[in-house]
Write a protein that binds this DNA or RNA. Structure first.
Lengths: 182, 182
DNA sequence: CGGGAAACGGAGCAGCTGTTCCGTTGTGGG
DNA sequence: CCCACAACGGAACAGCTGCTCCGTTTCCCG
């Protein structure tokens, strides 16, 4: 990638893939990404030898952003606001970016590139839950597994048709929050 | 299908498809169903001209069973027991049969064969929610849309690896119930 | 028990996917 | 300015899917 046009094309591919994945999910064919980028498939494969690498590259920044929000929540002195904010932000992201949560929660090789981030995410969530429980804002018997299950449920809604998914995701997020609160 | 062997083979196909769909979901290839039934693909297609018809046939009895449970819930004098029972039964079925809820809730042509059942299901659920709200056992502001969203969330968990899905589904069902209860 | 139609099996078609090959284009160092 | 070689485009390959065609087998009625 020593030539300027190569770098330019790489950027176009990443931008096209980001838009495509966010709106249509991670299942978008490579041909389609190439077409949207105005590029041949070979160019795409020169920069990203495999589909998984393209996905990982596109998602890296989003995952990092996710970590930032998580660390911010850890700094919040109000345990309920911190935990509920994380759930709500998660739902919000799910509405606007179908791809991200597949990386953080889904099975398969896509998430493998983010194992470390996933673990950090899980640790931080655990801290938030422990704090919230200590503050007495959680219903009796609720643990981090319940919260993770709730997030998984929200993430699993990604396959719904886009017209209804936003409303459904909002409702489910509300149910989860009502379900864990004391 | 005037010959006895044809009927025999048809039954084998249905049995194989039922087992395959229940354990692996509706995505099982036609070749695989044929192989499990010990039959050629042409035989399979002679009895079921299209994949959708095979799925509809296999699911018909389950959907009917679903309707029976729903009608039973409508006869329950205790509004909360009726509604929570429906949610719990739904989750239970989700654990044991990955295929069924795709038919009742999923998008696409598979569910089209059951439109009437889906509508009846929706009406009955609405009755249960109205009764529960009238009895004052629901949290303020909860409506049938929230319950439907909760069921959708449970149904969407079908794609999880089988080892963890049972626990997660149980937890989500618990969250949904806690989230709608007064 | 014989023969004609019903039913069968599996190769094959069409269309989708991810990935590779190779002739062509055009950038940029000397 | 010019040409070596980095980078390109798109046809082509391999492997999956749902579905069909057709020669062969098997039932069952008379």
């Amino acid at each position: 990638m020593r030539r300027a046009d190569a770098r330019f094309n790489r950027d176009r591919v990443v931008a096209a893939a980001r838009a495509a994945f966010a709106s249509a999910g991670l299942g978008v064919p490579m041909r389609e990404v190439a077409r949207r980028a105005g590029v041949g498939v070979a160019t795409l494969y020169r920069h990203f030898p495999t589909r998984t690498e393209l996905v990982a590259t596109v998602l890296a920044e989003r995952v990092e952003d996710c970590g930032v929000r998580m660390r911010r929540a850890l700094d919040d002195p109000d345990p309920w606001r911190a935990l509920s904010g994380v759930v709500r932000e998660f739902a919000e992201r799910q509405i606007h970016d179908r791809a991200l949560n597949e990386a953080l929660l889904g099975p398969g090789e896509v998430g493998a590139a983010f194992q470390e981030e996933r673990r950090e995410h899980a640790r931080a969530l655990n801290v938030l839950v422990v704090r919230a429980r200590a503050a007495g804002v959680l219903r009796d018997g609720v643990d981090v597994g319940d919260v993770r299950a709730g997030l998984l449920a929200i993430a699993s809604l990604r396959r719904l048709p886009a017209t209804t998914s936003a409303q459904v995701i909002g409702r489910v997020a509300g149910l989860v929050l009502a379900g864990i609160r004391a």
